[in-house]
């Protein structure tokens, strides 16, 4: 479905990613974990197109997208959310979500300007679809006409998820979807992620620090450290992997038993 092959990315002397290879399987939740600075977000950036890897390739449905621009990747069906919320702050929740479906819609300059006709039909069809599949699904109906800037953090994160979902993505990249959330909000988001997977069979890539959530919902876990993959497998395998324990907890000092 989505695979990265021997991708390397460095900024000056810092190797953010070195020869990283992995594959996210269709319809599975793949979690990418690792300590801070391990290269998780850099990996997301080469998949979504903000960075171009210096070596290696990115494939999506057997298509080489290593050098495609970010907007082309969106049209292929890759959506993402950001670690720091990147919503359009001046707009309402509904407008933000509508923008998510930009690449699926057709009306151009003249359709939009004349409005009555093609653009209006498209807008109303879109509105019906979004209300059903996104707003209702993510339980955002009570805030759809509020400005995003007035919402609390947890809801803003959920709106960002909604915006990504409006793209009807084949692959959904979630960069720390529950960072800074309390237990209840985390459980809500975890439930939404599982629902998305079940309802649309979406392939989901997840970067997250909340280990209990990662271990609960992912099918496959990939552990990065210093831009290298140090382990991968099912949550259970990874939890017991000595290299992972070392990366997170450090090695025991010699002599100190």
């Amino acid at each position: 479905m989505l695979s990265v092959q021997e991708a390397s990315l460095s900024f000056g002397g810092i190797h953010a990613l070195s020869e990283l290879t992995f594959e996210a399987k269709q319809g599975e939740i793949t979690a990418i974990i690792g300590p801070n600075g391990a290269g998780k977000t850099s990996l997301f950036n080469i998949i979504s197109g903000f960075y171009k890897p210096q070596a290696g390739r990115v494939f999506f449905q057997d298509q080489d997208i290593t050098h495609a621009r970010p907007d082309k990747r969106a049209a292929l069906g890759i959506a993402r959310t950001f670690q720091n919320i990147a919503l359009f702050r001046g707009m309402t929740v509904l407008e933000n979500i509508k923008l998510g479906s930009h690449s699926r819609l057709k009306s151009g300059l003249f359709d939009s300007g004349i409005y009555y006709g093609a653009a209006r039909r498209e807008e109303i069809a879109l509105r019906n679809e979004l209300e059903r599949d996104v707003i209702d699904f993510l339980e955002l109906d009570h805030i759809r006409n509020l400005h995003v800037a007035t919402l609390p953090y947890g809801l803003q994160k959920r709106v960002e998820l909604a915006r990504a979902l409006a793209l009807q993505p084949k692959v959904l990249l979630l960069d720390e979807p529950v960072a800074g959330m309390n237990r209840e909000e985390t459980e809500d988001i975890a439930r939404f992620i599982l629902d998305i997977q079940e309802r649309w069979n979406t392939t989901i890539l997840l970067v997250e620090h909340d280990m209990s959530m990662v271990m609960d919902i992912s099918d496959q876990v990939i552990v990065l450290n210093f831009g290298k993959q140090i382990a991968s497998g099912t949550p259970k395998d990874v939890q017991n992997n000595p290299a992972v324990i070392e990366a997170y907890l450090g090695t025991s000092a010699k002599g100190a038993a």
Binding site: F82, R89, M91, E95, H102
Partner: peptide, 18 residues
Amino acid sequence: RALIAIRDNDHSAEILGI
């Protein structure tokens, strides 16, 4: 809408396919 998106946050706009 795409134009307003560019004004508000050009990175997000690009990631949405604009």
